[in-house]
Structures are given as structure tokens and as C-alpha cells.
Design a protein around this nucleic acid. Structure first.
Lengths: 116, 116
DNA sequence: ATTTCATATGACCATATTATCATATGTATA
DNA sequence: TATACATATGATAATATGGTCATATGAAAT
């Protein structure tokens, strides 16, 4: 399947596992597949699959080191990006995303629907 | 279902429809549900459902206007965010996300696996 | 060349996500 | 209040996505 790049970008990040992997690489620095697997307690093949997604959007890069493959975060764009995103999250998603977003007033559609 | 806010943030954006809606609001300005429905050629209820997701993460805001509800993009954080993201996308996802991301050399696992 | 460790790939299944339909609620007006 | 229009909601069907297993490929060493 193929998305326009903009969509693909978000689709790739729309997954806890992959985001956690990026955060790991961001904090701990370059890691091999088995490092990541161990650190996040995730199956090796699952990690590998996830990494392919991340690679496709250039969120990470790889280099071979002996038998291992070392993955790094894309410092150039991804790191600053996360900073910007954190701004939104910290400001608007502090205690998880709530529902106090009505500009004018609370509008609640209380349902009493009959199931027939 | 409930995600930690950071995950929720991305999950919400990990959907073409919703991203398209944000882009619409970003470009065309505030719109009613039926405006959006018409513009993107999507069912009213589908639009409504999507908008709830976007509201929960404060990507958009609503205000009532007569019978209509006008949705706007969150200018404060979302707009600049998109700018930053565009940087990454334009630099690394120009012609869609390709596979030329090997740092050292191309490593292709050509498969000839027998299905039995 | 064979063995071993590290990683990638494909197929398949469980599960999550989206779209659709029917219908309820909100708002305004006659 | 009755009606019409606009939007939201819930249930559920259709679909997409992610994880697992088995196994193939790569690299290095024996």
C-alpha cells in the first residue's frame, strides 16, 4: 500500500510501538535491533518490522556493524520535530486528552436510544 | 479506549481522512460539518465521527452558529506544527517515501522462500 | 563450507480502526 | 408544539494494521 507522503508520515507515527522506539533512540542513542528488542521487551521480528516502517519515512537510519545493524534517529528533522510536538501535547494533553473543548458552551447529546 | 497523550496525538493524525480535514480547515478556514462533508465528499456522520477525534486532541475547536457548528483549526499549535512537519516531508518524502535509506550500502534480502 | 549469531521477510491470525446505517439530539422557526 | 434542517451517536459490518511464527538471508568465524 502507498500513501501520499504526508499521510504516510502520520500513519507511521500512529503506533505506540514505533513511537516508543523513536523515543528510545532519541534518549539512549543508536541501538542495534537486539538492543531495542531487549529494551522494549518486544520480539525481534516485531522490532524489525517496525524499523522498516520508520526507515521508509526516514525517521531513522541504519548502518552495518559486523553482524549487527545499528539504528539511529534522524537528528536533522525528527528530533526538533518532537520538540514542537511536545509543545502541543504539554499544553493540550496534560492529563490525557479530555473533552473540555467546547468553545461556546457544553453541548452533550445524552442518549436514551431504544435498540429497536 | 485511552492512550497516553503522546500516543493519542499520533494515533489521531494517523488517518488520511482526518489529516485531510485539518488541511482543509488550515487552507480554507473555519467550516461547518456540512461544508466539510461537501468539500471532501464524505458522509456527514463520518465527518462528525472524525471531528470528535480531532476535538479530543484539541487539533480543532468548535463554536455554535445557529443550527450549524463551525470547526476551526487550532492556530496556536497545530498550524506551526504542520510547518515543521512539512520540512521533514519535503526533504525526505519528496516522491513518496522511497527505500534509499541505507547508510552504508544496499542490503536486500531477496527471497526465494518455498511455501511449504 | 559449515556453523552460529543477528536481522529481515512472508504468511497468517488476532485485533484495532474506519465506514455506514439508522436514529437521536440540538436549534430555529412557523 | 410541530416541523425541518444540522449534527452527533451507537451498533455493527467491512477493512486495515500489528504481532507471531517459521524461516530465509547476511556477516563473521571456525
Amino acid at each position: 500500500m502507498k500513501y501520499p507522503s504526508f499521510d504516510h508520515f502520520f500513519m507511521t507515527l500512529g503506533n505506540k510501538q514505533r513511537v516508543r522506539m523513536l523515543q528510545l533512540l532519541n534518549v539512549e542513542g543508536p541501538q542495534s535491533v537486539s538492543d531495542i528488542s531487549r529494551a522494549l521487551n518486544v520480539e525481534q521480528s516485531a522490532v524489525s518490522h517496525s524499523l522498516q516502517h520508520l526507515l521508509q519515512c526516514h525517521f531513522v537510519t541504519v548502518k552495518q556493524d559486523g553482524k549487527e545493524r545499528i539504528y539511529s534517529i534522524n537528528e536533522d528533522t525528527v528530533a526538533p520535530l518532537f520538540g514542537q510536538i511536545r509543545k502541543h501535547v504539554e499544553k493540550y494533553c496534560v492529563a490525557g486528552c479530555d473533552h473540555s473543548w467546547e468553545s461556546d458552551k457544553e453541548v452533550t447529546y445524552g442518549h436514551k436510544r431504544q435498540t429497536a
